[in-house]
Write a protein that binds this DNA or RNA. Structure first.
Lengths: 339, 339
DNA sequence: GGCACGCATGGGAACGTTACCAATCCGGGA
DNA sequence: TCCCGGATTGGTAACGTTCCCATGCGTGCC
């Protein structure tokens, strides 16, 4: 049962090729100063032994302390939004010969800390981070030691690093104005955890729209902390039971939108605009109007910022805001009729 | 501008605490044989310097050659199915103190090779692999050297490793039988790349169902290689233009299902059952009947197999087949009426 | 013809850590 | 009083690689 063959090292290759380990190192890494026929002998030995360079040992010794690995820390990798972002980051990394370590935080500061600590212990060159609401003082030391950090989707409180977000507030404002434009004045806000920055921004946009149309805010129509689809469905039921129920809804992420839809009739007189686009939103009845953001662009932008930092850019931290888009498909009008 | 502080090492901590590096090593790793007050002095120095152990150097030197890192190689991380799987794998890894490197192959054997080579060069302890159709001989050497491998979603041709799949063939058979049970006899098959194992299995299940009902196969109704939603939509249009068009469709993944839906009317006389469940499938008109598989269970099962291998299990490779479930929601009947 | 130069190659040290073994110190029992 | 055993600590070497410098050799040039 004991069939484990020790991995061959450069020493083994050197012996097989009749050269020194130093020459193998040069040949394997494609450095100049190796004669063609020596290189061929080394390559032959590499193939015979199935040798593969140990990149951990390599980056330990190299002058340039890079590991060509970055860490991606998101709220939840299973969320399609972050999955798209992750894929986009991975593609950028792959193009540059970097690997990606991933971790989900569940928005728990403790888990975020654990994951980031494990990443920096592996000497990642940089981190792309969807920060939780917790403190980020633990990043100070790694950053001084050269680990680059970029925040994406949300800024991290008190952390002066490149940050890529979308115009959450303006997007929400546009969505709610769209509802107001259809004559709705009782517009409910259904939001997720209020300690998440994007949610506070979207709520501010909701208030902006009401204010600019001279509609007073009605606290009875505002629901925060809807962490799941059932929460959202329950909130909708409560809103409908009000003496003076809302005629339109603004939902602040795809999960809540979907949760709410489970409580809607076909058709339903209530109008709806949601944050986040998703597949088949145009096939629902009525077709769903949404504020769409582009997770692929978010990921790619964050990755490009990170890699330019890794490549030595030491300029002041930048803040990039990508634009959202209101996609009008019909659900914003309300009073949908049967088809 | 030159503010980069070199990372402190054990030597620095040792100097600050007035002990030897060896003692720091023991204290930091929580090994026995360090007096409480020495441990306290070391911990103090660690905090002052912001020291963090270099786990790459550690695993280079350790007797046990583990890096506590695994690699996850999927077709496309942005695909919600694989994203759920990835999250599930990550959770299992996190529970055990392992990190996860991810890579997408796009189903290209070349990219798969590159990604896996980069992973093994980092000395991952194991790989969870959604294999492409290419050869996997390059895995022989790393596996002999101790890298454990588990395949998930599909087996890898000629690779004797633990494999976790679902009962694609039986699931497809059930779906098509469901259509047959509603009286359909002209059932089209709309499939993705036929070089993907799951697609061949599902096609076989389609044929099984036809055969067991004594329906002859009509090649005009079978479409492979539908790699995108537009492809699927176009195939549907062609099928409808046939002199004797199908009355029902079997689509073999969520992408194709969604692509086909774009070409369906509201309502549409054509019946439809698709492989893969997705959010809001029950909100479409008509509500979509699907064969659902559980990506979270796939990922967790694969991870558990992998970790038991990493923990030393040397028994013969296992094959685990998880069950799919036919969820009947209405679209299998066809001839949907307005509501 | 002698010397400097470029190129290919190798030897030794080091990256940050841990395995192994030796050294030291203490108290307790003969 | 002396010796032994356990607990704590430190020195040295090594993991697999690359950096730095030295060596040897052939070639061109004055």
């Amino acid at each position: 049962m004991r069939r484990l063959v020790k991995r061959p090292t450069m020493k083994d290759v050197a012996r097989a090729a009749g050269v020194s380990p130093m020459t193998v190192s040069r040949a394997v890494s494609g450095e100049p100063g190796v004669s063609p026929d020596t290189a061929a002998r080394v390559e032959q030995a590499v193939r015979e032994l199935g040798y593969q360079r140990n990149d951990n040992a390599r980056s330990l010794r190299q002058k340039d302390p890079r590991t060509s690995t970055i860490g991606l820390v998101v709220d939840d990798l299973a969320n399609p939004f972050y999955a798209l972002m992750a894929r986009s980051v991975e593609d950028e990394a792959h193009r540059r010969g970097f690997l990606v370590l991933v971790g989900s935080t569940n928005d728990e500061p403790r888990r975020e800390r654990e994951v980031i600590a494990a990443f920096t212990a592996r000497q990642v060159d940089g981190l792309i981070l969807v920060p939780t609401n917790g403190g980020h003082g633990f990043l100070k030391q790694p950053m001084e030691a050269g680990t680059r950090v970029v925040c994406v989707d949300r800024p991290a409180k008190g952390l002066a690093v490149d940050t890529v977000t979308v115009d959450n507030r303006a997007g929400a404002e546009r969505a709610v104005s769209h509802l107001l434009g259809h004559g709705h004045t009782r517009i409910a806000y259904l939001g997720d955890r209020f300690d998440i920055w994007t949610q506070r921004e979207r709520h501010a946009g909701y208030l902006d729209a009401l204010a600019s149309h001279g509609i007073p805010e009605d606290p009875a129509l505002v629901r925060h902390e809807l962490r799941s689809q059932p929460h959202a469905a329950a909130a909708l039921a409560e809103l409908r039971a009000l003496p003076c129920p809302p005629t339109a809804l603004f939902t602040t992420n795809d999960l809540i939108t979907i949760g709410v839809m489970d409580g809607l009739g076909h058709p339903d007189p209530i109008a709806l605009v949601g944050f986040d686009d998703f597949p088949l939103a145009d096939r629902l009845s009525p077709p769903l109007s949404v504020v769409s953001q582009d997770p692929v662009a978010l990921g790619a932008t964050a990755a490009n910022l990170l890699f330019s930092r890794i490549d030595g850019d030491r300029s002041a931290p930048r803040s990039v805001v990508l634009l959202t888009r209101l996609i009008v498909r019909g659900s914003g009008a309300g009073g949908g009729r049967p088809r």
